[in-house]
Design a protein around this nucleic acid. Structure first.
Lengths: 257, 257
DNA sequence: CGCCTTCTTGAAGGATCTCAAGAAGGGTGG
DNA sequence: CCACCCTTCTTGAGATCCTTCAAGAAGGCG
């Protein structure tokens, strides 16, 4: 099962180049990162809190959650990671895990050694910058999540989450119906949104009744416009429509008009 | 008012070297970053949402908030920045602001050109890594904030925030009483915690009555042990007691035992 | 077919919000 | 030094959102 890397890394590379300009050699360096794939079943922790990690985890298939918990054991998922994401890219510079990682569905993970990433980043400064930038997009998502949990009610929270997921999967915006895989159980959805499973259930039913979204059998069919309005969703923070940044060393502007 | 840099940058450098090993030249590069200082009064926005920034903002004095808001205008502060922090270090690689920055008290800000930071980072890869690492600590704080807002009640939220602030200021842990400047109004505290000013007021009164913390006249005096328990606080995520990481290029481990 | 997970429903309780108004505090000008 | 104003803090009471507890229905898998 070692080294099915290429097609998996391709998807991550696409993500990177969406926001950063890379030369052909730099792209090759990404595709050559290597690593070995592993499968985890739903609810399996594959990075534990406080653990010192030596690999970075690229999600190949399935959904992954970054989570923490409070003293009473109530869980909170602080980030969702979709296929193509490296769930803990930050561990390259900070290997002591401050959050755990868990498979939220059956998931395939490509584990890439830190040493490979560090070597590539040391050789190509532009690549290092691209990786850093990618981490900052994740941070922007965390910040939005705080707004979501802090200042939106249950209906808006779930709507917002669905909208964000659709955009990150590349499935939105497209007016009208959108269908995509969404394997989270209502209990997991509760851990994401900071709600109770019971309340998540009732809120989902309301969204269904109002024709905004239907979370069923792993798929969501939504009325994009209405859902985005209901979730108070504005995709700017995801930085998907930004012109890719070019790396120019020695103090020149990051990119030019 | 241009170029009072040195002592201000010294504090930021101290933060950096707490988590990363830097050579003397690299330290000098940080101290030579330059920039110009500006004063802002409380509630003044000095970075607006969506703005394209050319400077990084080092907090010299006062408190600064990173904030977003929902559609109905309800504000949510997603991060607090204390003297010595660069509030938007991430803007070096992602200059389009995804959050606004606002002074939460009278604040002095040293504005350092991106070009200066990029130039230093390009010259010293170890410094680039240190900056990246610093950004990741900020991200870990964001993740904890989500847990705070999502899974802790009002009393625990405020307790946790006070504990975190004390540790970041270097004032804790110290058993028994701790005193430090905490200039936020109850309304601002509400924006941080995702609560209402009214409820913040009642919760603070309860903490005061129980002898845990007293937020008054800009200072907090607390019973550290009890407050940390009440806030479900564990400082690990702040990475303050971690052995500093050394930059070893070309794929060697980040640091060795 | 049967088991285990996930979803659904009801009813009561609690945490937090909303609205409203008054008290205290800090700064400024006369 | 007092008077005034504006911000911040405090208090009360009713409404709401969400939780808790409990139990039954539906769905997937061996």
């Amino acid at each position: 099962m070692a080294h099915s890397g290429r097609p998996d890394l391709q998807r991550f590379l696409k993500r990177l180049t969406q926001r950063s300009v890379l030369t052909p050699e730099e792209k090759h360096a990404v595709l050559d990162l290597g690593g070995h794939a592993e499968q985890f079943r739903s609810n399996k922790d594959f990075v534990r809190l406080g653990e010192r990690t030596e690999f970075v985890n690229l999600v190949v298939a399935g959904y992954v959650g970054r989570f923490d918990q409070n003293a009473r054991g109530a869980r909170q998922i602080t980030a969702l990671h979709l296929p193509g994401d490296i769930a803990d890219l930050h561990s390259v510079v900070q290997p002591e895990a401050t959050s755990a990682l868990q498979a939220l569905s059956t998931a395939t993970i490509l584990r890439i050694p830190h040493s490979a990433v560090r070597s590539a980043a040391a050789t190509y400064p532009a690549l290092a910058e691209a990786l850093w930038r990618d981490c900052m997009v994740d941070a922007a998502i965390l910040a939005q999540w705080i707004v979501n949990v802090g200042r939106r009610d249950a209906r808006a929270r779930i709507s917002h989450l669905l909208c964000e997921t659709a955009v990150r999967l590349g499935a939105a915006p497209a007016d009208g119906q959108i269908t995509f895989t969404f394997p989270l159980t209502q209990a997991q959805l509760a851990d994401v949104t900071g709600l109770t499973p019971v309340h998540v259930n009732r809120t989902i039913q309301a969204l269904r009744k109002d024709g905004l979204a239907d979370i069923k059998r792993n798929t969501v069919i939504s009325d994009w416009r209405a859902l985005a309005r209901s979730g108070d969703f504005n995709a700017d923070y995801l930085q998907t429509h930004v012109k890719p940044h070019k790396h120019l060393p020695f103090g020149q502007a990051a990119d030019l008009p």
